[in-house]
């Protein structure tokens, strides 16, 4: 492990491609946790991940109750109207107990902590999303190439969520 000691993680480049709340939170907690350890972090929101930074959508993200075996809920029940909302409400109340902030506040915390927030240009074009649809704390819109450029340097790790 001597070698690992000499090569600490310096920067985490997270790619968020999903909008289910468990994925969004995994991404945010990893990004925030990095900053808390003195590690740089950046998030590239692409595909459905863009929902997490869309002003009209970010407060209405849901946990997936269908196709999620860890819910321990029969698939047919998971598909009933309102089931996602109930599961999401329960999860949110548990998170609040642990002092995990709601998505909007979490984004503000990330930005204040120095996490860079980038939107994927291609996904924006595809979903016809404009920059004014996105949060004010956004650091900009990037292409994949632009994102990789920012990953330059020793000790950078990329993570796809």
């Amino acid at each position: 492990m001597e070698n690992a000691k000499n090569k600490p993680v310096k920067k985490m480049m997270l790619i968020l491609s999903k909008a289910t709340i468990e994925n969004v939170y995994a991404c945010f907690i990893l990004a925030n946790g990095a900053r808390m350890e003195g590690i740089e972090s950046e998030i590239f929101f692409t595909f459905f991940g863009l929902e997490a930074i869309q002003l009209k959508k970010l407060n209405n993200l849901h946990v997936a109750t269908v196709g999620n075996p860890a819910m321990h809920l029969p698939t047919m029940l998971g598909g009933l109207p309102g089931m996602e909302a109930i599961a999401t409400k329960m999860m949110k109340s548990e998170m609040e107990k642990l002092d995990i902030p709601p998505v909007e506040e979490f984004l503000e915390i990330l930005s204040a902590s120095g996490t860079k927030l980038w939107a994927c240009k291609l996904a924006m074009d595809m979903f016809k999303i404009k920059e004014e649809d996105l949060i004010n704390d956004l650091d900009g819109v990037l292409t994949v190439g632009g994102f990789y450029e920012r990953a330059e340097g020793e000790g950078t790790h990329l993570l796809f969520i």
Partner: peptide
């Protein structure tokens, strides 16, 4: 109290 960044903020 469990201390978090959010609480400090």
């Amino acid at each position: 109290v469990a201390i978090t960044i959010r609480k400090v903020g």
